[in-house]
């Protein structure tokens, strides 16, 4: 029964909800809350999947007992036993599979990002020209701006970018990139990236990656708006998004990144819909409930006899000890 509920939860939040959430309009107006919701939902599905596998090994009530006992510091619960049946082993294999895949892809993804960053930093030291704190200029005609996190973080501007940006637009670009660095957006993107690499078939994880990427850009825009007007920032986006070459045939005017940039620019120049506190509060509650579900699933069955736990467990252990001696 509890196993079925957990599996239903993983299916609904992992497969059905992502499409809803990625199409919801409010995410663009509250990018940080939306990114938080994606991350919490991903973590929630991962832990509930682990929990469902654990239920194959032992009952939810026993798990809850063990959880509460560990939380109360009563030591390792006596109810846990060595695996016996085939479902025990199936549960352990699933747990092992989930954990090892997550850890392995975490290692691969982090190592690749770190290597690439080290390479870029090395290149920048050789080719870049320092211009102000943390800002490096590359002598290249193509207008472009990006930041390389790590080691204090560097903002890179090309000579081409400096040529096309007005001072106000340049300030907007720098504010946007500083928001990326100070907000540790590369770490925020890393979490769904690890899960999407580990479980590429899970819609929640793959959509979380693309959505969180989009949302951190919007969050950085929001922060940059403290230093620049929306029109200036929008103009800066357009100046640096200029097509590489006008002669190139248009492959697809509605590709994914393209529509994301369009949405980003239009979001800056059109007035935002007023968001009501009630709506935001209810969305916050949804995010919190994602986080609370795995905890509640474990704790609730055991919470009924929470008070008697420690005494029961310790007395039974004392009795067992006495019996042994």
């Amino acid at each position: 029964m509890s196993l079925a509920l957990l599996v239903v939860y993983v299916t609904v939040v992992g497969v059905l909800l992502p499409r809803q959430l990625s199409q919801a309009g409010w995410t663009s107006h509250a990018p940080r809350l939306a990114a938080g919701t994606w991350l919490v939902a991903a973590a929630s599905v991962l832990s509930v999947a682990l929990l469902a596998a654990a239920v194959l090994v032992t009952s939810l009530h026993t798990l809850g007992d063990a959880f509460v006992l560990l939380l109360q510091g009563c030591g390792w619960p006596p109810q846990l036993r060595a695996p016996a049946g085939s479902s025990d082993y199936a549960g352990l294999v699933i747990i092992g599979w989930i954990v090892s895949r997550t850890v392995h892809s975490g290692y691969l993804v982090c190592r690749a990002a770190r290597r690439e960053r080290r390479q870029h930093r090395c290149d920048l030291r050789l080719l870049g020209e320092p211009a102000g704190t943390g800002v490096v200029v590359l002598d290249h005609p193509r207008p472009s701006a990006f930041c390389v996190p790590g080691d204090g973080g560097h903002i890179v501007l090309t000579r081409g970018a400096l040529d096309v940006l007005s001072p106000a637009e340049l300030a907007a670009v720098l504010a946007h990139e500083r928001a990326h660095l100070s907000g540790r957006h590369h770490v925020i993107v890393l979490l769904p990236a690890i899960l999407a690499t580990a479980f590429p078939r899970m819609p929640l994880f793959t959509l979380a990656l693309s959505e969180v990427r989009r949302l951190v850009e919007l969050a950085a825009d929001d922060k940059a708006l403290r230093r620049a007007t929306p029109a200036t920032l929008a103009q800066a986006v357009l100046r640096l998004a200029v097509p590489a070459s006008a002669q190139h045939p248009v492959t697809s005017p509605l590709n994914a990144t393209g529509t994301a940039t369009t949405e980003r620019v239009l979001r800056l120049v059109t007035p935002r819909p007023r968001r009501t506190r009630l709506a935001m509060l209810s969305r916050l509650l949804v995010a919190v409930s994602f986080a609370a579900t795995p905890l509640a699933a474990v704790a609730l069955p055991a919470a009924t006899d929470l008070a008697s736990h420690c005494t029961e467990a310790t007395t039974s252990r004392h009795l067992a000890d006495v019996g042994l001696e």
Partner: peptide, 25 residues
Amino acid sequence: LALLHFVDTMGPAEYEALQEALRWH
């Protein structure tokens, strides 16, 4: 994952449309 771009480059058609929208605004 190693770096964050300010913006990706876009196709000429989309660029024109956005330029137009920005001018209008």
